[in-house]
Design a protein around this nucleic acid. Structure first.
Lengths: 334, 334
DNA sequence: CACATCTATGCACACGTTAACAATAGTCTT
DNA sequence: AAGACTATTGTTAACGTGTGCATAGATGTG
């Protein structure tokens, strides 16, 4: 069917060894011979069989890109930016294999032979076992988006606690005192960090957040909607709500409008993530931007570095978040 | 390093052939022997080397999932749903390799050896060459989202023309006569189809759409915003605007609010795609839903069918779109 | 001129797996 | 009891590529 180095060898009147060396641009082969062989390869439309190469070179040319889940809980924008970032770095050097961790029934098939390196975009503590497995197998690994301290594992993430802290401070500085919180999906590390940052800000200014001002959420529109309905039903409504992501913030805003009220006039809303539509909803959403694409780029770069230099550095990179002030927060007069 | 069938063979006191057969559950091997071998394999934590398997079986266990572009023009939600749909079908039988077609400098490396099958999520006529290439190489192929008529290629898409037609008719039936259009990204087949469906609806009711009521768009928030600003500046403003996707519709709505006007009271807006946030913006967006996830599922299923039965059927599957009526269109009194 | 050195190439094997064919022992048939 | 057949296992080669070692010719050296 398709041409092999042996076919080329026959036509060129040399051994297949010479062809192999010529096409890999080995200094052992005469320039003239190389050129002749290259031309024949071109004519035959030769493409190396990567499976054979992999077998003998013990490299798969595969990079795994694993998400905590593909089926629920991962927001589309997040997913997209992560893949984009990684893809822009690897170009054609590796194949990018995308998987959801929760699709694995067993990690047995994850071996050094099938992955040259793995990028885990982790959103949950439940990812611990797979991280252990990969590290044990000695596969180069970078974990994005969530802190890990396993030795030999790279780690790139944004400082979400700090981002939430800034958002909380901002609300207080705008004059808010009755501030409510819609939490993220339980078990997701980000949910914990964002909550922590928010709490720290409140603590910093000595503002207490009663139980009625705290609602659980699932990072989706619907749970934001429900949570806000609850806040609106309270006798003493909060004047501002910090939502642990933009989708929930959107759902929350929707609930406010449905109740015949206005954002930010009657109630202020802050989100987290700066998703693409945050700037375009009405009112434009004040939110915390985390540099997903940059995180995935930096992560991929460092991973490739470790792969190519056969290192297993343990490095943690923390990228700053940024508060994006738009129109969804009202300045309260004292 | 890692165990091979030969290691198992030694421990079991049989030939490596017997081990291979046992682990592949061949009927040639005695049940008792199989069991013994399985236990040893388990103890050694044996995993087959897929590169070696691929080499001899001439199968890669790879499925390509190619998008027109990863870097711009593909909406995040679209991307996400497509991967989800395909992933839910293939589970652990194949590895899913995600690529942007515009990342390829040459299609040379796309061979039968490296891909058992390919799914192209096509958004542009520019994808013609790669489709030709893949079909010529005899690699099983399904093209999603855009019509193709190459022999031996599967094709699954939604009837967007019909969807846009219904949306257009709906606007007219709600009493609108001055209807404007924000077009999709030039070169994208969907842009043409949606425009065609809209035009057909207008033609059907004898409504003419002047040049000033047509604006180009790029499928992003910003171009929708710009286009709507243009419409608002006209002496005789349209009463309704059909946007070729939801993102542009969001941008358009934003522009309306900025001008101190209201949707749908002053101007009605219809989108296309029913992205996740369509239901949660204010006002909730009336739009056309196309079943991306279903399309990618159906496509993947049919592709796997063709791969496993070694067929190259030429089949086209057209899935219906659905008009989702929400709150962004005003009923005009005559 | 004899020997060492260098250059360009080939030979043979390895990577881990599957499969065609061969071999052995036991069972059945007449 | 001889031949045919069956069940189980082994021998060997093959997939396509890369590499250590051998080889042959050319060139340099004293």
């Amino acid at each position: 069917m398709s041409a092999t180095i042996k076919d080329i060898a026959k036509l060129a009147g040399v051994s297949h060894t010479t062809v192999s060396r010529a096409l890999n641009n080995s200094p052992l082969i005469q320039e003239e011979t190389k050129e002749r062989i290259r031309i024949i390869a071109e004519q035959l439309d030769y493409t190396p069989n990567y499976n054979a190469k992999s077998l003998v070179l013990d490299r798969s040319y595969n990079l795994g890109l694993f998400f905590t889940t593909l089926s629920n809980g991962t927001s589309a924008g997040f997913f997209y930016e992560a893949i984009r970032g990684v893809n822009s770095v690897i170009r054609d050097r590796y194949q990018l294999i995308v998987k959801g961790i929760d699709d694995y029934t067993s990690f047995h098939s994850i071996t050094k032979k099938s992955f040259d390196g793995i990028i885990i975009v982790s959103q949950s503590d439940d990812d611990g076992p797979i991280i252990e497995h990969i590290a044990n197998k000695g596969i180069p690994l970078v974990v994005l988006n969530r802190p890990v301290d396993t030795a030999g594992v790279l780690n790139v993430l944004s400082d979400e606690e700090q981002g939430a802290f800034h958002a909380g401070c901002y609300l207080v500085n705008q004059g808010h005192k009755k501030i409510a919180l819609i939490e993220g999906r339980k078990g997701f590390k980000s949910a914990q960090n964002r909550k922590d940052g928010f709490e720290r800000a409140m603590g910093h200014y000595g503002i207490s957040v009663p139980a009625a001002y705290r609602m659980p959420g699932l990072y989706d529109l619907e749970s934001g909607h429900t949570a806000m309905q609850h806040f609106l039903s309270l006798e003493e409504r909060p004047t501002a709500v910090f939502c642990c992501n933009d989708e929930m913030a959107l759902g929350a805003i929707k609930a406010v409008f449905e109740a015949g009220l206005q954002v930010p006039k009657d109630i202020s809303v802050v989100g987290f993530d700066d998703t693409v539509f945050a700037a375009y909803v009405t009112p434009a959403l004040t939110t915390v931007r985390r540099p997903i694409e940059q995180i995935s780029k930096e992560g991929a770069l460092r991973l490739l570095g470790n792969i190519e230099n056969k290192l297993h550095t343990t490095e943690q990179l923390l990228l700053r978040t940024e508060l994006i002030v738009r129109e969804s927060v009202q300045l309260l007069q004292p």
